[in-house]
Nucleic acid binder design. Sequence first.
DNA 1: ACTTATATATGACGATAACATATATATGGA
DNA 2: TCCATATATATGTTATCGTCATATATAAGT
Lengths: 126, 126
Amino acid sequence: MCCQGKQKHGCGCQGPRMERFIQPCMLLLLHEKPAHGYELMERLKEFGFEDGADPGLVYRNLRKMEESGWIESEWETEGAGPAKRLYKITAEGIDLLHDWSLHIERGIERLRNFQERYRQSFGKDN
Amino acid sequence: MCCQGKQKHGCGCQGPRMERFIQPCMLLLLHEKPAHGYELMERLKEFGFEDGADPGLVYRNLRKMEESGWIESEWETEGAGPAKRLYKITAEGIDLLHDWSLHIERGIERLRNFQERYRQSFGKDN
DNA sequence: ACTTATATATGACGATAACATATATATGGA
DNA sequence: TCCATATATATGTTATCGTCATATATAAGT
């Protein structure tokens, strides 16, 4: 989880749900280097989207993130295959990525806390 | 995140979304000791649901989990205040809790992987 | 009497993941 | 040439879930 709903926390990543994990992953991939949607679908495997992320999810997120000003794109007609939209992360997108990282850090702490308590509850000292 | 959608993984925790984090938390709390909904709402704060979990979310989850056979309840009319439903975890619920713990462990790994890659992308060796 | 704490429950809304499908272009093989 | 496949983007539909609001009832305190 990123944030846990309700509480307001002025950061850009206004989503209370960890489902949105795909968003920071895409931002990070685009920070590493500009890419188009199809390429991102493949590279997302490296973040645990094992079968490759759903195209609908990827493309809808890309357009939403562009609307929000976190990424920007231009058509690339050169090269082989059909035209592709090349996306780049913006300065605002980088700010958002930093926010996400902080929330993910807290998410890790919450999950670790759960695991520790789980082990205690079952008498595992390991 | 627990699971990352699509891939089937025969475990009981059939939810692909980390939103459901409240579910393993409730199971763990009920494993520690039987409780009723209102009490769980309070104790969930210890898992990061800072303002106390939403009543609607808690009670709906309780009934759903009872339907699924992971917990069971009985009315408790004795004692002060309005009647309360006392919930206990079942053997199946404990199995599910173990499943959840495995998936949460993987979730931690994914998040840590993200953080490491994030730091690399921004040249932070820390 | 009025407020607050305790306790459970439901209705409505919005966001999102999941699944299915449509589209177009280029490449390689039969 | 025809067909399958890879590349690439896009949309529609459904189900789930978190959020917020609200309803109900009991008991204790003021």
